[in-house]
């Protein structure tokens, strides 16, 4: 069963619709102690970093996510949810992340946000066994190529070379990652739930 973390901010409804379109069972997780019941935990994110992390801490999810990570439960972070997996987030004066992935979340070197579609291709077999061995096979597809939708001002900057990562396919954003996988954690900077057909295919591949 897939669990979607709810802390009152973040685009929960889009995630529910995304899972429904792919005929995947889901629950909304309001109590951090319930995290243990789920084979995949989704941390969605739309909002500002300081408010989101504050809500995660006050609700108890911040600590329980660390416990779930230690237990090896699989987690998927989307946009701001992915940024929280890193060590440090620069937005709003700076905040400590969960530290599952070594790296920082820094302001993009562009005037406005990166809002729009960019190319994305992905080979499932590039992921490590830590993710693949727990995978549920609802799709035999292993490769996809198309476009994904981004909407962000800050980006994922890895400092760990020993993880799977692909960079954003755009000249001035190429140091920033679009997808990172480390052991039981996947961080997606783009919005798969709003990436139309590719988003649905990606979900089925990653499950």
């Amino acid at each position: 069963m897939v669990g979607i973390i709810n802390v009152g901010v973040g685009n929960i409804r889009s995630i529910k619709n995304w899972l429904d379109r792919s005929i995947v069972n889901w629950d909304v997780i309001d109590n951090p102690k319930d995290l243990i019941n789920y084979s995949l935990i989704i941390l969605p994110g739309v909002g500002s970093a300081s408010l989101f992390i504050d809500r995660l801490k006050k609700s108890g999810f911040f600590l329980e996510l660390k416990n779930a990570h230690t237990r090896g439960q699989r987690m998927l972070g989307i946009c701001l949810g992915a940024q929280v997996f890193m060590d440090y987030l620069e937005e709003d004066g700076g905040a400590e992340g969960l530290g599952f992935i070594k790296g920082h979340v820094l302001k993009l070197p562009i005037k406005n946000s990166n809002t729009g579609w960019l190319p994305f291709s992905f080979n499932l077999n590039d992921l490590s066994k830590a993710w693949l061995q727990n995978k549920v096979s609802i799709s035999r597809k292993t490769k996809i190529k198309g476009r994904v939708f981004y909407n962000h001002n800050y980006g994922l900057l890895l400092t760990d070379n020993n993880v799977f990562s692909q960079f954003i396919d755009c000249d001035n954003l190429s140091p920033f990652s679009s997808i990172i996988q480390k052991k039981n954690v996947i961080a997606l900077q783009f919005h798969p739930e709003k990436s139309q057909e590719l988003g649905e295919t990606l979900l089925k591949m990653l499950l």
Binding site: V46, G47, S48, L51, E91, S113, N151, H152, N153
Partner: peptide, 9 residues
């Protein structure tokens, strides 16, 4: 609004 949803929103 910026605090709740981020400047990109």
């Amino acid at each position: 609004a910026t605090k709740l949803y981020g400047k990109q929103a």
